[in-house]
Simulated scan of single mutants.
Amino acid sequence: MVDRRPWLTVLSHLVMIVGVMIVAFPLYLAFVASTHTADAIVQSPMPLLPGAHLWENYQAALFGSGKLGSNTNVVHMMWVSFVTAIVITVGKIAISLLSAFAIVYFRFPFKMLCFWAIFLTLMLPVEVRILPTYKVVAELGMLNSYAGLTLPLIASATATFLFRQFFLTVPDELVEAARIDGAGPMRFFKDVLVPLSKTSVAALFVIQFIYGWNQYLWPLLMTTSEDMYPVVIGIKRMLAGGEAAVDWNIVMATAIIAMLPPAAVVMLMQKWFVKGLVDTEK
């Protein structure tokens, strides 16, 4: 029986509130900075209450020309980031599902060797793979393209491993029942395994979407055309070098806007995300 102690409840809530405040305070400062003029932000001390320039700054961030160190606005960059994140997410999940399905349910030579070869790629840091990958993409003529931004990032050893572990928990009776009913391998995959995996797919969708949205190093190497800048690169381009003044109010407004899509995905899929992680643990 759990002993409920009032002081322990108060302490746990206090710790949670302090943790939320620590995490949320930088976001609050970014929002406050996005509602003031650039001159007001650089003053000491910086204002801690929202200002009267919210609509003006966000309009300039979304549609203003020349504020990003380029002629491309945030709306277009958000679209590039969205397409990149969606393609990476859907591609990772589809390839990982099929890879795990083949490893668990098919017998072929060197099956475990193939699995461990996939798994060992997790031990290779990005820096080791990025230059050979760039050379391949450049020779295939995929620089400054959606294919170049997404295809090198579309495989996932982690997702393959998670789906494999889940498929191993599926009872053999389901396989036998499907075989008796005359269902082929792909019918069993489509009608049985994919519906059973929907919570794991939802959890991975959230994780991989945020991963694709926040990509910085690979797009930085891949894109030389302003039309293919994702929003993360756009924020970097806003930070002028040398002694040039930085419009910090526009930078912060752009950062807040860039956080909205991944935050919306997390909030809308929170229930499925938590359920998918719990089911994966089982």
Rank of each mutant, 00 (worst) to 15 (best):
D279C: 14
V18K: 08
P262D: 07
F273W: 15
A60E: 04
K135Q: 11
W213C: 08
T89Q: 02
K271A: 15
P195D: 00
E139H: 12
L143K: 03
F25N: 12
K198E: 10
A264K: 03
W55D: 08
L68R: 00
R107H: 12
A157F: 02
G276W: 15
M259P: 01
D172S: 14
Q59T: 06
S65H: 14
V10Q: 12
K190F: 04
L120H: 00
A258W: 06
L196M: 14
D227S: 14
T280W: 05
M77C: 02
F101C: 00
A100G: 13
F163C: 08
F163Q: 10
I95K: 01
Q270L: 12
A147Y: 15
T158P: 05
W213L: 11
N144G: 05
Y211K: 05
G64E: 08
T223C: 01
A40E: 00
G91E: 04
F205E: 10
T35Q: 03
F108K: 07
V175K: 11
A30R: 06
S145R: 02
T133W: 07
F273K: 14
P6R: 04
I207T: 15
H76L: 06
P47C: 06
V75H: 04
V136L: 15
L153R: 06
L54M: 10
F119G: 13
M259Y: 03
L221M: 15
Y134A: 12
F161Q: 01
